[in-house]
Structure formats: structure tokens, C-alpha cells
Amino acid sequence: MSLLDNVWVVLALKLGIAVVVVFAVALVIMFAELKVSAHMQHRVGPYFAGGRWGWAQVFAEALKFLQKEDLTPRDADRPVFRLAPMVSLLATFAVIVIIPLSPKLVAVDLDLGIFYALAAGSVSTIAILMAGWSSGSKYSLIGGLRAGAQLIAYELPLVLAVVGVVIQAGTMSMVGITEAQAQPLFHLGSVGISLPYVLAGQIVGFVIFMIAVLAELVRIPFDMPIAEQELVMGYLTEYSGIRFTMFLLGEYAGMLAMSAIAAVLFLGGYHFWGLNADWFGPFVLLGKALLLVFVMIWFRWTWPRLREDQLQSLAWRWLVPLGLANIAVTAVLKVVL
């Protein structure tokens, strides 16, 4: 019994650390969005808070959100309305748990790691639908509907893109996939050269994965469910104060989580040529993930938004067939090579 208790204690500790780290990085990403967008638009961005570069801006905003009134509209379905942000945040954290930071630093290493991540991530759809419906506002409802349609459409390409990687690596474990990418692919003289999957056959999968991730995260150019100019923030319209903050945090934590997963699946995870994964692993992985996050921010501030039907046709006409073709090619190559 005491051992079991210990396991739970350890797990709780790990989870606590994970939550703190994720919050910290999410705040960094928020700040990066403020600054990056500002520089892309010839602005300075946050400047005063904290004295230098406005580094305290995100904390100031977090405080502002926390002290705002937590409103629940009269027509809202109270329990569902209040539960939705928590479900959203929970789903995101459930994904983050399985990301391996180094060969030894893994909160949970599941056999089915990536499969679990996809399953946990799909729960966030429910949270969005809950938020959209329970707000009692037509704009929220339309936003929720759009989100539902969009997330269903992009779940499939996401899974298909992952399947290619799984076939090539021969495992679903996140650690296993990372290690598979560290295996020497070919030899130059006596030196074995390893390549991350994005360079070793899964470039199509990577592109599909990233597009689907953008859609899953409801980021521009796929942010129709919140579409401020059309739906006045869609399913977020009625949220305020701490619950809005939870959605916001969920978005940035989700960006981090999905980028980290993409880094594990396609960019070699914690491995980087010549760096000791045990020591530098966490930084390498974080660096790769933040690079992808930067790309997401970059897209956000340069592109307009697609229309819902255009997004659907992109998913079904291009991404799904491409994903299937990718799987077929990968499977054939796996057998042949």
C-alpha cells in the first residue's frame, strides 16, 4: 500500500511541476505574441509595465483578468457554462503530461503515448461545444457549431499525419518515436547520420500535421469559431474574468503542447546533433517547440481568415487524401527498405 501511495505522490508531484512549467511557458508565449505582433506591425508593443521591454505586461494582464467580475449571462446554462473552461484546460494538460523532455525526464511514458495525446486532445472539442451552447447567445452558438464542424474535420488529417510517423517508427510511445529518430539513417564513413522525420520522409505529414494543429487550436487562418469581426469572439463572447483567462491559458498551453508534440514526432524531440540529450534535452525540445510557436504567431499576424466552407474543402479535398497517400507511401517504403 505504501508503495502505491508513493506512486501517487510522485505522480502528483510530477503533475504539479508540469502545471507550473506549462503556465510559465504559456505566459512567455503570450508575451511573445504581444511583442512579435508589435514588431510585425511597426509598433513597440508593451513598453511600460515592469520597466524594461514591458516584461511584466502579461502579469499585469493576468491580474486584470483575475480581478474582473466573473459574469454568467442570465440565459446561460450555469453548470455547463462554468464547467467548459475547466474541461478545456484539463484536456490541454492531459496532453502535456506525456511529452518527454529528455530520455529520463518523462512524466508518464505510455506505450500508446501519441494515441493517448490525440484522444485527450479531442476532448477539448467538447469543451468548446459546451461553451458555445451554454452561453445562451446566438453568436456563441454559431461559434460553437463552427468549432464542432472544424474540429471534426481536422481530427482526421491530424491522425492520418501521425499514422505515417507511427508506421515509420514502429511504435506509438513518444520516447520510442524520439529514439527512433536518433537511430542512424545512413553512414558517412564510420559516422552514423540520424535525421529527424521531417527530413527523413515525413515532410508531407509534418505539413498536414501543422495545418491540422492550427485548425485544432482555432488560430488564424482557421479561427472562424472565434472570428471577432464576424462572431464577436464566438464561443468566448460571454466569458469574462477568470474563466476567460482559463480559455486564454488553454489556448497558449495548447499551442505549446501541440508544438511540442510536433517537435517530438517530426523534429527529433529532445535530440539535437552533438548535444547530450540527458542534459540539454529539455532545452532542445523547448527550443524546437517555441520555434513552431513562433511560426504560429507569425501566421496569426500575417494572414486573414478563411471561410468555414473553404476550410472544410481544404480538409476533405486536400489534407485527407494527402494524408492517406502519405500513409500508403510510408507503409510501402517501410516494407521495401
Partner: peptide, 16 residues
Amino acid sequence: FPAELGAPTPLMYALR
């Protein structure tokens, strides 16, 4: 107009 399509950045370019 681009802002209505969801792209806020041209706003800054033109307003400058």
C-alpha cells in the same frame, strides 16, 4: 477591409 477578413496587420501599415 483586411481587418474584417481577420488580418489586422495591414491596418498598421496603412494608418502610418
